[in-house]
Design a protein around this nucleic acid. Sequence first.
DNA 1: CACCAGGCAAGTA
DNA 2: TACTTGCATGGT
Length: 226
Amino acid sequence: MIEIRKREYLIEMYNLLYNHFGPQGWWPAETPFEVMVGAILTQNTAWTNVEKCIKNLKEKGFLSPKKLYNLPTDKLSELIRPSGYFKIKAQRLKEFIRFIFKEYKGDIDKMLKEDGLILREKLLGIKGIGEETADSILLYAANKPFFVVDTYTKRICSRHRLIDGDVSYKDLQRLFTENLDLDIYLYKEFHALIVKTGKLFCKKEPECKDCPLKIQKITNQSRFFS
DNA sequence: CACCAGGCAAGTA
DNA sequence: TACTTGCATGGT
């Protein structure tokens, strides 16, 4: 009963966002490997900063597993400096690249064919890859149905009283996966749309004035689910 | 000047 | 388990 209301609420959120912003076409990258690199670089960092790094790597011809494998960590860190945390992110990228060679001989296609749940566990075993980064790689690079949740997702769902403010990643993710159809296109667009409206309207101050999810727009009677 | 951005790991209690 | 801190550049 309660779950059905949440389901309808989530679907209504998606429709409002999709109708307002249109399809986002995430992830913004040319190849699955570029998605993976971007997923690590964008950790707690504005995407505009990551774009500079991707551009650097492309221009210097380093955006491939083999080239990065042979690039010293301190050289790599200079190329990704604009993303912030550049020393630690250079290490994380190198860890990730070593993993690709160890498990798949450096072959991205082989990695993408791995079973989703198994790949997720392996990714989480890499130092520097947490749940959000793993799920971003799984969904947007490997095309597997893992819903990505981030700080915007938590903030918006909390504001809308869909969750308590202190739920775990897993519980927040479950809100979506248990209430939405297993639809990869939907997963990709929904997360991207949440980030889109989150950036624009869901700052720390509840400044939701022009947000398409303006609370009274969605519901007049079922704001509370328990 | 302060504050934030498409997190994560390590240390502490 | 749950909380705190370091990591760091670039935009508003």
